[in-house]
Write a protein that binds this DNA or RNA. Structure first.
Lengths: 198, 198
DNA sequence: GCGATTATATGACGGTCGTCATATCATGTC
DNA sequence: GACATGATATGACGACCGTCATATAATCGC
């Protein structure tokens, strides 16, 4: 090999990262390959040396971004468990900072609507990482409520995604924060200290 | 006037209805004006005799569709109230039929991601109808739980939208139904007969 | 340093988009 | 029944899209 064998992989991961940000900011259809490559500091033509199609890039971007987000959300909470752990997770996810920085946050609220109409490849990739995430959340949850840990993990995920997407869809910041706060309360319906910080 | 004065309004409403279906099926950016006009039995050129822009059409389509959906969901439940009413609403919203017919269902799951990036006009229209919906849901809810009626209305809306969007984004029908069932349970956490029918 | 090879850039293709100017058609009045 | 008028269709514009063929630039072994 003429180039160091890491060179192309590095460029590839830079494209994936730029795609993640651009998809989150502009959506899948709304983001063009030209813009993604420019965000990665490259020109548009070399794209197909790294990916076979835009769909394949979406699948990769979802996989990488979901895994990174998971690490980010779970970090520092290793000592917690049960409802205390859930409370911290929900506080992080439904924070105003997360709402105001879509391109740095979770991929699901900006993309879930389009994902329902996407091709098989990105859908399958999303589903796989979602299952991993659900399993890891469920493993942290208690088994003493009306919902099983897996049920609660799934429902909490749905609530988080829906709340963040709705909070970003409305103009009024007050209503937006109301959505986040109310959803936190529902997610922690059995946790008395539900609405402490914002 | 040479035409009956209802003629153009009728055509306009036909375009709005076709736009509603097409937007729900293909998304806002994914749907073209040509396809919408064809779905309304018209040609693409006459569009700008009815609307100033695609954004204006989106705002109208959201407004009309949200109001129709609200009537559809609330009809037949007038005699119920409190948790019984909520249970019926959630059963309707999170049904597999609703999941499998996006173009006939609620506009929020297919469009909420794009709405967060949309122009001011459609966002404002969406926000207005959403507020009406929240008020009407809250008026039906009891005031004795940890969440106020308004909080529960907002959180239930977020949960419903997120659950339906996620349920449509995954390929596996079993996982999809799991998401719906678990979200029903969380929405009705204080209702012992939560998971009766599918 | 030279040549081979690989990564990236340039440029172009067909297709589709939102928008608009213009033409055609249908309708109601006289 | 001819004409005026409003509703819809035809066609075109520039811009952007995903994709790919080709050219250029950068790197490493010798």
């Amino acid at each position: 090999m003429r180039y160091s064998k890491e060179h192309k992989n590095y460029t590839r991961s830079r494209i994936i990262e730029a795609a993640g940000r651009t998809f989150r900011k502009q959506g899948y259809i709304g983001a063009g390959i030209d813009g993604i490559m420019q965000a990665a500091g490259l020109s548009h033509g070399g794209f197909y040396a790294h990916f076979r199609s835009k769909d394949e890039l979406l699948a990769e971007a979802i996989r990488v971004s979901m895994q990174r987000m998971r690490q980010h959300w779970f970090s520092g909470l290793e000592k917690l468990s049960g409802l205390e752990w859930l409370r911290e997770l929900v506080e992080r996810y439904l924070s105003q900072q997360h709402r105001d920085e879509p391109e740095l946050g979770c991929m699901m609220p900006p993309l879930v609507s389009e994902l329902a109409r996407a091709a098989e490849l990105p859908r399958a990739g999303f589903e796989a990482t979602l299952c991993e995430l659900v399993d890891q959340v469920a493993a942290k949850l208690p088994d003493d409520g009306p919902l099983t840990p897996r049920e609660r993990a799934l429902a909490t995920m749905a609530l988080n995604v829906g709340a963040m997407a709705l909070a970003r869809a409305v103009n009024d910041k007050e209503l937006s924060s109301e959505i986040l706060a109310a959803s936190k309360k529902l997610a922690l319906y059995d946790c008395q200290t539900a609405s402490t910080s914002q």
